[in-house]
Design a binder for these strands. Structure first.
Lengths: 224, 224
DNA sequence: ACAAAAGTGTTCCCGTTACACCCATGA
DNA sequence: TCATGGGTGTAACGGGAACACTTTTGT
């Protein structure tokens, strides 16, 4: 089988760009590296693909090891294959992004990995080619956000319209008119009002809403 | 450096999904495999990444070996990392798509590689996970086509508005009103009329247009 | 009483769509 | 002269943007 063995092999890594909302701000979960290479710099959480797992499996494993979570929304960003992207060895990396709901992670595990939440608009200096990975991912989710209902993965199951609007404003980076926003939500079948009231964030109380996945799949219109 | 060497290595391939227009139809350049694995099936053109080249370089090399062309529009689609996607060996593949202009290739090289142009709406059975690669790529270019001026890569440098409209109809899969289309073109700064006339496709003759890249970059509005 | 967030409709404008006929030319 | 593709304008419609005040309730 010379066809294969004439060719070189490579380490293949996955890098997980993990998003979450902390106090309404869009944040990334980053780790400060206390080992070489790039010791002292910040980086997104990564790991190597193993022989018995697909690249997608590896990304899910890395996420699970860091957060304790399964069944998180993840999607591939793309492969990064520059020759010298890792100063230690030739490594080809496949980047994924994940969207975590609030509080859906194990603080102890995060501490064990030197990981902390950093707002995307005040990122520290990142090692490797992670700056490019992150900027490409931000472009990707901003585009996707407007056309597909991925944002709900960042919110609790029940959320108020103010929370939803703030999320949109945060990710798209511009203010939205409240009445127009609520009008569009009302026309969006997959966002349904519950009869529950949230009293924690205002004196008056706000209705709680929920994303209805099966309604979305039966009539996948989404634009907000 | 146990950090790296504790981990397995993999063959890494690139697969090129090459688009071109043949007689106005959107086609893919496919090869009939006369070697294992998947002998006899059709596949997109691929190759292995080498130690001295990036993944992007490898994709460009594969394209050059097949077509003789440099400086072709190419973009990454993503990585495909399922464990058994290649029946012969574990291979992780990074897919790219390329857009070729008409006649911009060496017919002799194509023949040497058993390659031929196949319309995308009548594709033969493909090997490996190439069906998924192709369908993901088609989605990708259809989305991108409406928002960025990538379509001009499929046309000659000078083209008529009928050619441009037919291309849009072909890729988006629906007819477009001629007057509305021409109105939008007239409002699009990066598509400029030349004073040349094409007489080959009609008795009356049609004005030739050209995509002006620097105008696009100074005012990157594009929607057509 | 007041602070703080929730909730609610209408108007205007611009961009999108629908639509049908004349023009220039080579055969 | 006729067949073929090239070229042109207008009217109706609908979705998106702009805009300010009332409600509720805990302190």
């Amino acid at each position: 089988m010379a066809f294969y063995s004439d060719n070189p092999k490579f380490y293949v890594a996955v890098d997980c760009i993990i998003f979450g909302l902390v106090e309404g701000q869009l944040c990334l979960l980053l780790t400060r590296r206390d080992f070489e290479p790039e010791r002292g710099k910040w980086s997104v959480m990564g790991g190597f693909v193993q022989t018995d797992e697909s690249a997608d499996d590896a990304a899910r494993r890395v996420l699970r090891q860091l957060t304790g979570l399964e069944n998180v929304y993840m999607e591939q960003v793309g492969a990064f294959g520059a020759v010298n992207r890792d100063p230690g060895e030739r490594v080809i990396s496949i980047a994924y992004y994940a969207l975590l709901g609030p509080g859906e992670y194990d603080p102890q595990l995060l501490a064990n990995h030197n990981a902390s939440w950093v707002p995307v608009d005040t990122l520290p200096q990142l090692g490797f080619d992670h700056p490019e990975m992150v900027s490409r991912t931000l472009e990707l989710i901003r585009r996707k956000f407007s056309t597909e209902p991925i944002g709900f993965n960042l919110l609790p199951e029940l959320f108020t319209l103010s929370q939803l609007q703030t999320l949109h404003e945060t990710i798209l980076g511009e203010p939205i008119d409240k009445r127009n926003f609520r009008k569009r939500v009302a026309e969006t079948a997959c966002i349904e009002k519950t009869d529950l009231i949230d009293k924690t964030s205002s004196r008056r109380g706000a209705s709680l809403y929920r994303f209805n996945d099966s309604r979305y799949h039966s009539d996948p219109k989404f634009r907000i």
